[in-house]
Design a protein around this nucleic acid. Structure first.
Lengths: 189, 189
DNA sequence: CCTACCGATCGGTAGG
DNA sequence: CCTACCGATCGGTAGG
């Protein structure tokens, strides 16, 4: 048992916020998770809200990096869409705690921080709108597509993954990504 | 200002649980919402957990009723799918508080109640699996469709509606339902 | 539905 | 990272 780093504290906070929510996690709970007292956490961080901010910022960063990578993929809009879906899925499954906290606990941030999360989400969503618009223009997708609306629908599917997907289930990651990609591009018909 | 009924209390609890979450709502908050003291609520209900149970049960009931109605629609699997999408959307938009609480706060239920919510969700999801299976068999949908997976994707879109949709926005209810139906059946291509 | 409480727990601090 | 606290708030109760 060596001493905890500040990073350990933020990571553990992410796990508990993801599992029990921000309001459902006390500093004493977090201390117990790390093997120390709640009051001892204040030598690592200023307060509980700061922990939430840091966890949420990590989540936002992962997503934005993935979007930038996907937009850089050369080829058709369809290929970039597949890269977006693949990247999002990877982020969700590789960083579940930060992602869950980012997606579900942002309401517990103070006004200013909350606004910046909303802005970050909009920037991220814009990657989807951009690719959809490209595809509607160049003929990869339907010309009558409503890109902002379709972006919301696609992200709804993607963001829900962490709520139900289990790594040890019937569907592996590849099948998951392929399944989402096919529904998005071709639908059920 | 007449006295509050038990129904008023449950309805107000739904509003606050939906807005601030179960853990983020105190009995004193709820009392203030109704114009009385937190302690006075105990003449209407046994406790906070009971309020959550009742709000969640209302949400579950609305959804199951809508699914039963949609399954009773005669015609093609495609028509029943549209009825499912339409019904779900109506429930979400007409009963936002109960729906949000049902979808987001079920984790705060005790073990037994939580298990019964999970069972209710599975029963509801089964309506989607059934229609998808019908459609895959009778040629309305792709024969290689994975109905359980497609059901999750469709419900992901539907459940997310309450997170972003605004009644006074660019998209009216009809356009919303049509947009979701088209993405689900035809995709973006 | 209010008055007057209860013990428990909360986020956080002072000082080491 | 601990000891020893603080005031505030929590869900809930007794009695009216």
């Amino acid at each position: 048992m060596t001493r905890n780093t500040r990073d350990d504290v933020v990571a553990a906070a992410g796990r508990l916020f993801a599992e029990r929510g921000y309001h459902g996690t006390s500093m004493r709970d977090l201390g117990k998770e790390l093997g120390l007292l709640g009051s001892s956490l204040y030598s690592h961080v200023d307060g509980k809200q700061q922990l939430l901010v840091e966890v949420v910022n990590r989540g936002a960063g992962f997503f934005q990096q993935a979007a930038d990578d996907a937009l850089a993929v050369e080829g058709s809009a369809t290929e970039r869409m597949r890269a977006l879906i693949d990247g999002h899925t990877r982020v969700v499954l590789d960083h579940r705690s930060e992602v869950r906290t980012y997606l579900n606990e942002a309401d517990s941030l103070d006004h200013e921080r909350r606004a910046s999360v909303i802005a970050a989400r909009d920037r991220y969503e814009d990657a989807y709108r951009t690719v959809l618009k490209e595809g509607a223009t160049d003929g990869s997708f339907r010309a009558d597509l409503d890109p902002p609306l379709a972006a919301i629908f696609i992200l709804s599917i993607l963001n829900a993954v962490d709520r139900w997907y289990r790594e040890d289930g019937r569907v592996d990651r590849d099948a998951l990504v392929t399944g989402m990609f096919e529904l998005v591009t071709e639908g059920v018909s």
